[in-house]
């Protein structure tokens, strides 16, 4: 009887522990949620895709914390109506990229402005949040011109909706390199009354098979976002590709082992093991040669 009483106490204690541990999760429901901040940038690459790059973070304990793995929904706002474009999920750095294959997928308002709303529904930890991005469509036409044996990058910036050139805008002219693009031309290349900049291409820029890729960029414009045009030209100083990536070298992965290292060690290994197997067979022969 006394034992049974003991068991009851144990049972009640276990129930108590269970309920107490449950109350934590109840408490979690009421925990203070953090607000989400978002930064969004629109980028258009001429003759290619357009995309939105969004960074989500939160201010927690006086520090900016990247918010990973949250789903953001992208809407095209038109006359008070929201048309869903799709979703993207943030990575471990709180970043995500939403690609528009064609700008015709979205519609501008009466002022030829595209309005995009980015919404986060909220979850157990973070409050719901939204961010709006507005931009107009612009284009950059870039080409290489040669005058008096000097090569130039010439680029013209236009507002597509009004089909008018945009003057007095800063364009970055640069050539793509391995880690970061190399600026060329003047320190500040401002478009003239024809919406054009001309930047001199210096001699001696190395390029694999002489190929260079030039970029003309309207960067982070309040009206147009980032617009970039790329143009390739064989104007570089040829460099010899000394990579041994496709060769069989001592530092290659195992599928590119030098042949002599495949042949001789394997010959030795299989040769010795062949003899060892022969000797083991001899043991069987001895065992069978009783008489």
């Amino acid at each position: 009887m006394k034992n049974m009483l003991k068991y009851r106490f144990v049972f009640l204690a276990l129930v108590g522990v269970f309920l107490c541990s449950g109350s934590n999760s109840v408490y979690a429901q009421n925990a203070k949620k953090h607000s989400v901040r978002m930064k969004a940038y629109y980028t258009k690459i001429m003759d290619s895709v357009s995309f939105f790059k969004v960074t989500a973070f939160s201010r927690i304990d006086k520090e900016n914390v990247d918010i990973s793995n949250i789903e953001l929904t992208f809407y095209n706002e038109l006359d008070g109506e929201k048309i869903k474009l799709g979703t993207a999920t943030t990575d471990m750095h709180g970043e995500c990229k939403f690609v528009l294959k064609n700008l015709n997928e979205i519609k501008p308002d009466s002022t030829n402005t595209y309005n995009i709303d980015i919404l986060f529904k909220g979850n157990d930890t973070y409050k719901k949040a939204s961010k709006s991005v507005s931009f107009k469509d612009a284009s950059i036409t870039a080409k290489i011109i040669t005058k008096d044996s000097t090569n130039y990058v010439s680029a013209t910036l236009k507002d597509i909706a009004t089909d008018s050139v945009l003057s007095d805008r800063l364009l970055n002219v640069q050539v793509q390199r391995l880690f970061r693009s190399l600026p060329i031309g003047k320190e500040f290349n401002s478009t003239d009354e024809n919406g054009t900049v001309v930047a001199t291409i210096p001699d001696g820029i190395p390029g694999v098979n002489r190929n260079l890729t030039f970029e003309v960029v309207l960067k982070d414009s309040d009206d147009y976002g980032t617009v970039m045009a790329l143009v390739n030209a064989p104007l570089g100083t040829p460099i010899k590709d000394e990579s041994t990536f496709d060769e069989r070298t001592m530092w290659s992965p195992r599928d590119k082992t030098p042949l002599f290292l495949l042949i001789f060690p394997n010959l030795l290994t299989f040769g010795i093991w062949g003899i060892i197997i022969y000797l083991i067979i001899n043991l069987f022969k001895i065992s069978k040669s009783k008489i």
């Binding site: 001592m250 992965p253 195992r254 082992t257 290292l261 495949l262 060690p265 394997n266």
Partner: peptide, 9 residues
């Protein structure tokens, strides 16, 4: 892994 990924070099 020594046998699976080993390099003869």
């Amino acid at each position: 892994n020594l046998f699976i990924h080993g390099r003869m070099q």
